[in-house]
Design a protein around this nucleic acid. Sequence first.
DNA 1: GAAAGTCACGAAAACGTTTTCGTGTTAAGA
DNA 2: TCTTAACACGAAAACGTTTTCGTGACTTTC
Lengths: 348, 348
Amino acid sequence: MKRKITLKQIARELDVSISTVSKALRNSAEISDDTKQKVQAFAKLYNYRPNNIALSLKNRRTNTIGIIIPEIVHHFFSKVISGVELVANKRGYNVIIGLSNESFSKEVINMEMLANGSIDGFILSMSKETLKLQDYHHFNETMTQGMPIVMFDRVVSEVKCDKVIVDDFNGAKKAVKKLIENGCKSIALITTKDYVSVGKLRTQGYLEALEEHQMPPKAELILKIDESLDYEAHLEALEKEIEQLFQSNPKLDGVFAVNEIYALLAMKVARKLGLDVPNDVQVIGFTDGVLSKHATPSLTTVSQHAQQMGEKAAELLIDKLESEFNSADEVFQTVVITTDLVERESTK
Amino acid sequence: MKRKITLKQIARELDVSISTVSKALRNSAEISDDTKQKVQAFAKLYNYRPNNIALSLKNRRTNTIGIIIPEIVHHFFSKVISGVELVANKRGYNVIIGLSNESFSKEVINMEMLANGSIDGFILSMSKETLKLQDYHHFNETMTQGMPIVMFDRVVSEVKCDKVIVDDFNGAKKAVKKLIENGCKSIALITTKDYVSVGKLRTQGYLEALEEHQMPPKAELILKIDESLDYEAHLEALEKEIEQLFQSNPKLDGVFAVNEIYALLAMKVARKLGLDVPNDVQVIGFTDGVLSKHATPSLTTVSQHAQQMGEKAAELLIDKLESEFNSADEVFQTVVITTDLVERESTK
DNA sequence: GAAAGTCACGAAAACGTTTTCGTGTTAAGA
DNA sequence: TCTTAACACGAAAACGTTTTCGTGACTTTC
């Protein structure tokens, strides 16, 4: 078990100085061809690679970016990571991940752990708890220390940084308009409580679409789920709620849900009540997850282009890292990724 | 945008030496109480945190572990990461990820990128291409340089290291036995080509279960899919193959598939051919993915306990890192995670 | 009052790089 | 032959820590 070889060892072995070795390997004009060849051959033989940590310390940059997300076992987030990793690698960066598990304190701890030199910048999506507490000090502190942040999906105007978001509003509006054009007269919305910014925007899109078609919104058609519960553990409760929605609105003929699970459950309930999808009820979900594609009937969804979000976030961050940022003219951009309506079998 | 404060700055500010500051912060007995208080108060005020990179260089360990996986947008792998992250964080480690995209060269490049000091050890699952090429030099070279590796799921006996695997053989056997006990007389196997070790073992489990019940295996009941194609892009071709399987075996009443997608497609084909699941055909898949749970009918599967695999892999790696490993008595263990049959609606 | 011991702190090395600057040798020019 | 320039290389600092060892000032002891 031989350790990795260092410049010092090469220098000692070849009886030259460390500086000479370093220069020879970087093909400096200061070094004679003879010496260069000798050193390079030796280095190749022993498979020399500069030590990243030493370089990081010297250069005061790690070429590593940190991702903090609520959870990784989630199609949307893993797609985003995939996108980030793609461009990060292309541009010579590594990716280090931290999971907040939707917890504020874990988010803070994770950020502190990484902010002490391990990474050059953050790409993150806030935890639900952070959104609820509205405590953003850790983001702002990180930024005043000169570490850039790019936020995606779950953002908040109180934090001034680059952002990549989905046009939730228009995506929702497009979906609901589609339902209306397809003849739906009574369209339900299944959404989350309002503290998740994303849910709020989608709700607004739903309302706006109705308004544009002179369809007055009805409170009893809007179901707000309390997402503080982990839904995987409460599927039955959720299903009951949705069933209630159907039963108290017998004329229901369209459902727009702000995520895949809600949409799938709506289809399940419909089937259970003897309704056919899409002939009796049409359903549209949000998120281009794997469930929608393989459901029966397959689910029409608003696609968020998660991978593209990740790619864009990485571009923004690395651009900022590599610009000789003139601390003064800090100008932040918000990139909006447009959604697409992917039509499948759950709509006519 | 003030940079993070360093020992040197504190020392200058307080007019003491760097050593004194360092010792004061670590509560050394060498330092007087007065000085300690002064230094600690100052450090707290300026929110001093030691620089990780400098520590890594000094200690020659980064407290970071590297994960290399074929892809992250995959329920199994993200669950594994989740498990790794859980115990890594608990034990004071960070996690850095690299994706091979099932490509040999990306696997090699990623490993080289991380092996130069960025991490202390690897947790990885090999790419399909690596399995096909049977070229394992990068693993062995990494290990001779003193960097431990823990492999999971896709392993190979040629590489001597700690391993965490699923009992694919018994999992498959259990599943097929279940089908037999449920009255199936003609059970198909949908699997992959043999170079993926995992697929081979599951096939063997299938055969053994049949044999134990004196049911001679029939070649026409075994469908081997060429997985070098990305299946998401070839769903229709796949579906055709499965349809053919059904049509050339009219008495088919049971299907065991080595993954979720194949199982779901089998159910889809069955429905299309007017067969009811589970009354006419019973289906079991492998992997405790999210699709199985939300399919209609929900799919009975062999659960792999991916998260547990990740946790165990992390335990193994960190244990090895923290043992003063006496290079000599290298002894590697292979931990087998037992599978469970999760019964849902696709079986009787 | 001198020897010994304690206390509180600082200097410096080390981890592995890169880079600036200095320096000794040789060759060219006057 | 002496000055100068080019050449090839080495010393040292710097990145931010921790830790070993040395040292000056006091205090204690007989």
